[in-house]
Amino acid sequence: MKNKIIWLLISMVLVQESKTSCAEWKQPETNCVNDFANQTNSLAKYDNPEKLVQEKLDVFDKRMEDIRRMIELALLSQTEQNIKRNVDFLESLQNVEHQLEKIKVQEAQWDHNLDNHNNLTKASSKKVNSDCIAKLLNIEQLLKEKFEEQEEKLKQKLEIQNKITKSLWQKQIDNIKPRIDSMVKSDSLKIIQEKFETLQKAMETQISNSITQFESIKNQMQDNVENFRKIGLKYYYIEQSENLSWYGSFHKCLTLGGHLVSITNLSEFNAITTGLQPHKHYWMDVNDLGTEGLYLSAATGLQATYLNWHTDNPGHNITNHCGELRFHENKHLMYISDCNDKELFICEFYYQ
């Protein structure tokens, strides 16, 4: 009975081992069933079950050893492949490191070249600055010496001039002093005072007459203002029939209480020329009678502030010195003509 129980247990173990072995090695189910039948038949042949179990265990251990070796071989193969892959990777890594080293060497070379360039630039800049500073100091020294020289010369001239002036004043005082002393002792001082009072009265009378004459002229000019009309911001008299020379026109404007028109800007120019007759020319105050090419205003005596010439004018003609508004190409523009030509004229009122 005991042997049957042991045999049954061994059979169960073998069955389980057989199933496990078949599952691991992926054998077909029919092979596993056949193995189990063969093993069962083998057990029946043995009278000693323990021996049978030992034999099966030895077979199982051998099979496990084979499996272990197969796994080790597989692992060894996989390890060799990994090592090979790692070697390739290491070679690539070494190539990258080699390239990085080259790049570092190139960067170091560039930095070195840049430092050399900067040093050369700084040295050149320092040299240029040093030269400039030296030149400036030299110029400053020369100017200082020149100034001191001029100052010394001027000081010497002033001292000489002061001495001469002082000497002249002293001579004048020496010449006048005897006369003053004699005048004080005599009645000459009283005579001089009387003459001074007479002269003062005459001057007062002359000033009074001048004021009266000025008021008369002013009133006359105010009466003449009726002959002027407002154009823009000023009053003008535009002669429409009488033709005079520039000099005659100048005098005529004075008798009317004004002067030949003095145009000072474009706005005045446009306002005046708009009302002029076409194909007529009008004298104005611009002239270069004093200096050839220097055009002054007869009203102010100063250089004209506004000029608007015709094309190719003014020319250099020794006989043409007086300015006019000449009609040409359907518009009036400034032109230099012979002062003796007979033209119309424009007067500007003195008091605006």
Rank of each mutant, 00 (worst) to 15 (best):
Asn3Ala: 13
Asn3Cys: 08
Ile5Tyr: 01
Leu9Pro: 03
Met12Leu: 14
Val13Ser: 10
Val15Asp: 03
Gln16Arg: 06
Glu17His: 05
Lys19Leu: 00
Thr20Val: 03
Glu24His: 03
Lys26Trp: 14
Val33Asn: 03
Asn34Phe: 13
Asp35Ala: 08
Phe36Trp: 08
Ala37Phe: 08
Asp47Lys: 14
Asp47Leu: 11
Asn48Ser: 14
Lys51Pro: 00
Leu52His: 03
Gln54Ser: 15
Asp61Ile: 13
Glu65Thr: 13
Asp66Cys: 02
Arg68Cys: 09
Met70Val: 12
Ile71Asp: 11
Leu75Gly: 09
Phe89Ile: 11
Leu100Trp: 05
Leu100Met: 13
Ile103Arg: 08
Lys104Gln: 10
Gln109Phe: 04
Asp111Gly: 02
Asp111Lys: 03
Asn116Trp: 05
His117Glu: 13
Asn118Cys: 13
Asn119Ser: 15
Lys122Val: 04
Ser125Tyr: 10
Asn129Phe: 08
Asn129Gln: 11
Ser130Met: 04
Cys132Ile: 15
Ile133Gln: 14
Asn138Glu: 11
Gln141Val: 05
Leu142Phe: 03
Lys144Cys: 12
Glu151Gly: 07
Glu151Val: 01
Glu152Thr: 08
Glu152Gln: 10
Lys157Ala: 11
Ile160Pro: 00
Ile160Lys: 12
Gln161Asp: 15
Ile164Trp: 09
Ile164Cys: 07
Asp174Asn: 09
Asn175Met: 08
Ile176Ser: 13
Ile176Gln: 10
Arg179His: 06
Ser182Arg: 01
Lys190Gln: 15
Lys190Ala: 13
Glu197Lys: 15
Leu199Cys: 08
Lys201Ala: 09
Lys201His: 07
Ser208Trp: 04
Asn209Ala: 15
Glu215Cys: 03
Ser216Tyr: 06
Ser216Asn: 07
Lys218Ser: 02
Lys218Glu: 01
Gln220Met: 11
Asp223His: 04
Asp223Gly: 01
Arg229Ala: 05
Lys234Met: 06
Glu242Asp: 11
Asn243Ser: 06
Leu244Cys: 03
Cys253Lys: 00
Thr255Asp: 12
Leu260Tyr: 00
Phe269Trp: 00
Asn270Leu: 09
Gln277Tyr: 04
Lys280Glu: 14
Glu292Val: 08
Gly293Phe: 00
Leu296Gly: 00
Leu296Phe: 05
Leu296Tyr: 04
Leu302Ile: 10
Tyr306Lys: 02
Leu307Ile: 07
Asn308Tyr: 09
Asn308Glu: 06
Asn308Gln: 06
His310Ser: 07
His310Arg: 01
His310Tyr: 05
His316Gln: 12
Asn317Pro: 02
His321Arg: 02
Cys322Tyr: 00
Leu325Val: 07
Leu325Ile: 04
Glu329Leu: 14
Lys331His: 14
Ser337Leu: 03
Asp338Val: 01
Asp338Cys: 05
Cys339Asn: 03
Tyr350Asn: 11
Tyr351Asp: 02
Gln352Gly: 04
